[in-house]
Design a protein around this nucleic acid. Sequence first.
RNA 1: GCUCCCGUAGCUUAAUGGAUAAAGUAUUGGUCUUCGGAACCAAUGAUGGGGGUUCGAUUCCCUCCGGGAGCACCA
Length: 592
Amino acid sequence: MHYYCMKASSGLQELNIRPDFMLSYKAMEKDKIKKNLAAALVKIGAGNIDADLEHPANSRFGDYSTSIALKLTKQLKKNPLEIAQMIADNFPKIDLVAKIDIVKPGFVNFWLATDYLINDTRNIAEENITYPKFYLGKEHKIMVEFAHPNTHKLFHIGHLRNISTGEAIVRILEAAGNKVIRTNYQGDVGLHIAKCLYQIRNSQSAISNYKSLNDKIKFLGEAYAKGQQTYETNEKTKQEILDINRMIYEQDPKIMKLWKETRQWSLEYYEEIYRRVGSHFDRLYFESELTKRGIELCRQAQDMGLLEKSQGAIVFNGKKYGLDTRVFINSLGLPTYEGKELALAEKEFSDFDELDKNIHVVTPEQKSFFNVTFKVEQLLDPKKYDNKQYHLVYEWVNLRSGKMSSREGNVIEGNWLLDETKRKIQESYKCDDMVAETLAVAAVKYSFLKTGTENQIAFDFNESISLEGNSGPYLLYTYVRTQSVLKKAVNQVSHDRDLIGNNDLNTEESDVLRTLYHFPEIVGKAAANFAPNLIANYLYDLAQKFNLFYQKQPILKAKGKTRNLRLTLTRATANVLKNGLYLLGINTVDKM
RNA sequence: GCUCCCGUAGCUUAAUGGAUAAAGUAUUGGUCUUCGGAACCAAUGAUGGGGGUUCGAUUCCCUCCGGGAGCACCA
């Protein structure tokens, strides 16, 4: 077994991933070339160094390329082309490599033997795909905490981006060999709820008036907006809202009935959305279950000298660590978000035995919050928390016209977006309800996932949710094409049939062939960088190449070996699309 | 004021320090006697400004400009 270290992106360096837990590849093409390249480098006197080896962006530069010769000019005191030639001359002859080229400034380009690639493709066509392993510790166990909508509020398109990202991260890490625990932390106490409940208590309409889930959620949203308004403008009601907030924290029976019922509305509403987008959770955590333990842990931290009293509150003084100062227990004696986080961490790290890592999928404005709480946890119990917590930043979904805010009433609800997309699909194309639903979810999820998590999305319905070009429906359409062809292929490809020896491929066949085998590597990279967009981009590239191949090269009308090869390429493309889309949390359809 | 993130074609986005900066969309023109036109081909069009490190910078460093976020009792 070779251990293969993948370079972590800058954001990942703070994970302190130990090399032996990185990626363990089972002898892939790349490892074989790397090994022989290393041998050649020793031979020419460059010593034991790790050379770069990548797929060139342009396929005319071969399947793999290294720029190591350019980097060795000083050390070897030779010009790069000379060094490149020496590397090529000393590279051990192996069947895998058909050709080595030396190019301009000093690149060494490797061309893989077509026979090998065809063999790979045949494996993929038989759905025999092995992903590289990516482990973050010896337990191979990771918690991914995502979605986290707060009760009594709308599930908006920002949450939709979160849940799409979180779900994809979960599936990718699972594919990379980990046991993944899905959790979801929801705020069901706090001022936003007090505002909402205050308004309901003081309104004329009884909550029993609202029957459908839709009406209930709409009612909650309106109540919150009004409560928010009076909180800001009326000092007297502000005090009453603060009282209600305290009652919720203290689980005062006078407010519990209303709180429980409205909270349940929210939870049912969220369950419906989770089902709709194909997510589920192993454990839902709630702020309300953390109040008591949060206070206890803060007291404990205070006794240890980690937290201190300041202006009636209990705070963490971050200055000596270069961090912000933040409040853990406010001057009313209630635990803040920070205080409760200590109790959450304790639960999360004991409910499922030992974890290698806990990944929190959360927007960037909570950086300061996480830096501080992670620090306090680590000081509280280094053995338990050291290097275990990670804040995976995903960025906001903003509107072209500006930020969404409930105050402005321009919050775009997740369900609305899915419904609108579905409607648009059904207006433009003939397809049944199930297919339209799958396509809508695919279009929405893909539109979020194709962008890197660290980029803000400027959302515009007509432009963001596309059904053509680089879109979810395009990938599904490509998959449907493959299914259609494969169904019509009366003589299924016989995998025993010798495809090898048919090396005279045309450009389109070759391009598909030379893209298919990247798939496991891409999944490994996506896992190591927590970057679903790498898979999205790869699938799109593959789909484009397949569609061009499909356009120019008849599959079913071809004869003999050519037909078999083309069918194998088609089947392999289908499998990569299906498996890749699964990793993105997107279902395929056979007809559309 | 301090800290962090982001500035790539009209718009939305790609690009482990590598080769001619890649797509979608929009605009214009083309492809159907052919396996699904939600497709394919072509044209037009870009790294915010200025320094630096390097054989090589969209990428790393400095600075300026522009956008976003955070910095004590919200979550």
